[in-house]
C-alpha cells in the first residue's frame, strides 16, 4: 500500500471520527449525571439544520456553528425539563426527541425549500498549520483539517479536565452515582443534571454543525445517519470518560474508513455488506480482548424526586 493511500486513510479516519467523538463527549456528560442520552441523533439533526440555514443567511461559518450549538442546547434543555423536572421516562423521551427532530427538520426543509431542497453552501476548507503539517504521516493526518477539528483537539483535554479535575465535574459524577448522598451534601441534583444534559446537547450540536458545514456542505434528510448512535456506543465503550470515548470514536472512524478502502483493495469477492459489518465487529472484538468492566453510573435512568 503506497504512502498516499495511507496518508489519505489516516486523514479520513480523523474526519470520520470527529463527529462521533463530539457526540460521545456530549453523551459522557449527560450520562455521568445519570441521564440516558438517547436523544443524541436528534440534537445532531436540529443543529445540522440550523447551522446550514444560518450559513445560507449569514455566510459566516463561525456564527453558523454557534447557532447549531445553541439549537442543540435548546432542545436538550427541553428534554431536561421533561425528564429531570417532570420525571418522564428518559429512554422514551430521548427516542421521541430523535423522531421529532427527524420529522421536524425534514418537514421544515420541505416547507421552506420545497422539493428542490436546501442549496449547497460554500466549502469549509481545510486549513494547513504551517510547520506541524509537514511532519510525515501524522502531519497531514492531524494538521490539515478544517478548523472545527482543531477545536476538537483542544476540547478533548479540556473536557477531560472539567469532568475529573473540576468541582462541577465531581458534582456531576456524584449526582450520577448517588444522588441522595449528593443532595445531602447540598449539591442541587436537578441543576447539576440539567447542566450536564445541556452540555451534552452543546457537543452533539457541535458535531452536527461540523458534519453539515464541513463534510456535507448542505442539509439532507436524516443527515446524521446513525452517527448519534455511534457516539452513544463510543461513550459507553470508553467508560464515560472523554478520553476513552475519543479512543473509541477513533477506532470506529478507523474501521469505518477501512471498510471503504478494503473494498477497493480486495481482489477477493467479499460482499460489501460483510465489509460494512467491520466497524461493529471491531468494537465487539475490542471489548472481548481488551475491555474491562464498564459499570454505568449507578443512578442512571432513575428520576430523583426532590421533596
Amino acid at each position: 500500500m503506497n504512502v498516499t493511500v495511507l496518508v489519505e486513510y489516516l486523514n479520513s479516519t480523523i474526519r470520520v471520527s470527529v463527529p462521533i467523538i463530539l457526540v460521545a463527549i456530549g453523551v459522557c456528560y449527560s450520562e455521568r449525571g445519570g441521564v440516558y442520552a438517547m436523544g443524541s441523533e436528534g440534537y445532531m439533526l436540529i443543529s445540522a439544520f440550523v447551522s446550514v440555514v444560518t450559513m445560507i443567511y449569514t455566510n459566516n461559518h463561525f456564527i453558523s456553528v454557534l447557532a447549531g450549538i445553541l439549537s442543540g442546547m435548546l432542545v436538550a434543555g427541553i428534554f431536561s425539563y421533561f425528564t429531570v423536572i417532570l420525571g418522564a421516562d428518559q429512554v422514551i423521551c430521548g427516542l421521541g426527541i430523535n423522531f421529532v427532530m427527524l420529522g421536524l427538520t425534514s418537514s421544515l426543509q420541505r416547507l421552506l425549500w420545497g422539493v428542490t431542497g436546501i442549496p449547497r453552501i460554500p466549502v469549509m476548507n481545510a486549513v494547513e498549520i504551517p510547520v506541524l503539517s509537514k511532519i510525515p504521516l501524522i502531519g497531514s493526518m492531524l494538521f490539515n483539517q478544517p478548523i472545527p477539528i482543531y477545536l476538537t483537539y483542544l476540547l478533548i483535554p479540556l473536557v477531560w479536565w472539567i469532568m475529573f479535575r473540576s468541582t462541577w465535574g465531581l458534582q456531576l459524577r456524584a449526582v450520577g452515582e448517588n444522588p441522595s448522598c449528593a443532595d445531602t451534601l447540598g449539591i442541587s441534583v436537578r441543576k447539576t443534571r440539567i447542566l450536564g444534559i445541556i452540555t451534552g446537547g452543546a457537543f452533539c450540536g457541535l458535531s452536527g454543525a461540523v458534519l453539515s458545514l464541513s463534510q456535507v456542505q448542505t442539509f439532507t434528510e436524516n443527515i446524521s445517519g446513525g452517527r448519534g448512535w455511534f457516539g452513544l456506543i463510543a461513550a459507553t465503550f470508553g467508560g464515560w470518560n472523554p478520553l476513552g470515548a475519543t479512543g473509541a470514536g477513533l477506532i470506529f472512524g478507523a474501521a469505518e474508513s477501512l471498510q471503504l478502502r478494503l473494498q477497493i483493495m480486495s481482489k477477493i469477492n467479499i460482499s460489501s455488506y460483510v465489509i460494512l459489518m467491520i466497524p461493529y465487529l471491531v468494537a465487539l472484538l475490542f471489548i472481548l480482548f481488551i475491555g474491562k468492566s464498564r459499570r454505568h453510573p449507578a443512578a442512571m435512568g432513575k428520576f430523583y424526586k426532590k421533596y
Partner: peptide, 8 residues
C-alpha cells in the same frame, strides 16, 4: 443518501 459516506 449519505453525502459524507459518498465523500469518503
Amino acid at each position: 443518501g449519505d453525502v459524507a459516506q459518498a465523500r469518503e
